[in-house]
Simulated scan of single mutants.
Amino acid sequence: MAAMLDETALSQALSGRRVLVTGHTGFKGGWLSLWLRRLGATVVGVALPPARQSFCTAVGIDRLIESRIGDIRTENTLREAIGGQDFDLVIHMAAQAIVRTSYEAPVDTYMTNVVGTAVVLEAARRMPSLGGVIVVTSDKCYENREWVWPYRERDPMGGRDPYSSSKGCAELVAAAYRASFFSAAGGPQLATVRAGNVIGGGDWGTDRLVADLARSAGSGVPARIRNPVNVRPWQHVLEPVRGYLMLGAALLDHGARFAGAWNFGPGADADVNVGRLADLAVSKWRGECPDYIIERQDGAPAESVVLRLDSTKARAELGWKPLLHLEEAVASTVDWYRAHRREPERIRAFSESQINDYAARWATGKDAAPAQEEKEVIATCA
């Protein structure tokens, strides 16, 4: 595979392709759909209705692509939403994505993340023109051993909470479908992708650190931060989205070589604890966001303390690498929320300009940090 060095090559691969995106009304799904449209793909989205406050609603994603409302958890409702359409590429992003919500509604979490994945894959395998499927899971799919070493794609699946285990289960469902239905030479291929903790403009999800700080900046009420010592791999939303798009193009053009699991984690500077990320975000608000309050919650649901990803495979095989330092990712995120608060009617153009600036950064070939296999661990739980 020739290296895909810039957005022009990506557009050549995806322009004119028919792409089904499940979860387009969500945060990452909205950014993915906006970029696919920019690349010239014909995009159809299937998802539940967007929240009143969401990236989809702010930017008007449902007016830019063919948006269909449907529940992925049953075959009949998904079939009705798709309406018999055929696609070259399916990117499955629809999910229940909040760890704490999974404690409150575990059955719904498993229904959406596990059964929903099987329903989408069952629909995909019956599409005559299908070339590839990407199932988006999570870095939390791994059996977390609370060690400092980053997880690689071959590490075992696990999960100690309903959300994490549901993502591990989704990986197992995808692996079974890959072996059973997506392994024919020259036939459609299936990949799964695992990203870190994604930040970016337009995420108003519950229990999201940067979203909580953005709400704090708008209201003047200090955000309450849990677990400040927990280390996560933070990255801007456009980093993994670019990886998904590059992988989709590779599946369509080169097939089985790019099937399997892929990590898209951040650069060396971005594995930091929650407190460090919160401090950085507050500083970027330049006085508009009050300092946060650390909230100790006795008896609160347990969450992993340390979690890191190794993206060596994506670097070596796909030519993907993170482009933004953590400070740049946070600054870009804060800029989006500030722009939305001041000129909400222009936020679509602002979002497109952020994609444009990021694509220009990609074209320069500048790396955000050394490859993970060469770096030392720089974040601690102290």
Score class of each variant (00 low, 15 high):
A3D: 13
M4P: 10
D6N: 15
E7I: 05
T8N: 06
A9V: 10
S11A: 15
L14N: 00
L14A: 02
T22I: 03
H24E: 00
T25S: 15
F27L: 15
L34S: 08
L39V: 02
A41T: 13
G45I: 08
A47H: 12
P50L: 06
R52W: 11
R63F: 04
L64M: 11
D71V: 11
R73E: 06
R73A: 07
N76L: 06
R79H: 02
G84S: 05
H92A: 00
I98G: 03
S102P: 08
Y103E: 10
A105F: 13
T109M: 05
Y110D: 00
Y110P: 10
M111L: 15
N113S: 09
L121V: 04
L121G: 01
E122F: 04
R125K: 00
R126H: 07
R126C: 01
R126D: 03
P128Q: 15
V133E: 00
V135Y: 12
R145P: 05
W147R: 14
G158S: 13
G159V: 07
P162C: 05
Y163W: 08
S166I: 05
S166F: 06
L172M: 14
V173S: 08
A175P: 00
R178F: 00
A179R: 01
A179F: 04
G187L: 10
P188D: 04
R194G: 08
V198T: 07
I199P: 01
D203N: 15
D203F: 10
D212H: 03
A217P: 09
S219K: 11
G220D: 06
V221H: 14
V221C: 14
V229M: 13
V231K: 01
R232L: 08
V241R: 04
V241P: 06
R242M: 01
L245Q: 02
M246P: 11
A249P: 12
A249I: 10
L252V: 09
D253V: 03
A256Q: 11
R257G: 12
G260N: 12
G260D: 12
G260Q: 07
G267M: 02
G267R: 10
D269A: 07
A270D: 08
V272Y: 05
V274Y: 11
L277G: 03
L277C: 09
A278Q: 13
A278W: 02
I294W: 05
I294Y: 04
E295P: 03
D298K: 15
A300C: 03
P301N: 06
A302P: 05
R308P: 11
A316L: 15
L324H: 06
E327Q: 15
E327L: 11
T333M: 12
V334L: 03
Y337R: 12
R338L: 13
A339T: 15
E345S: 02
A349N: 12
S353T: 12
I355Y: 00
Y358S: 09
Y358P: 04
W362C: 05
T364K: 01
P370D: 01
A371D: 15
V377I: 15
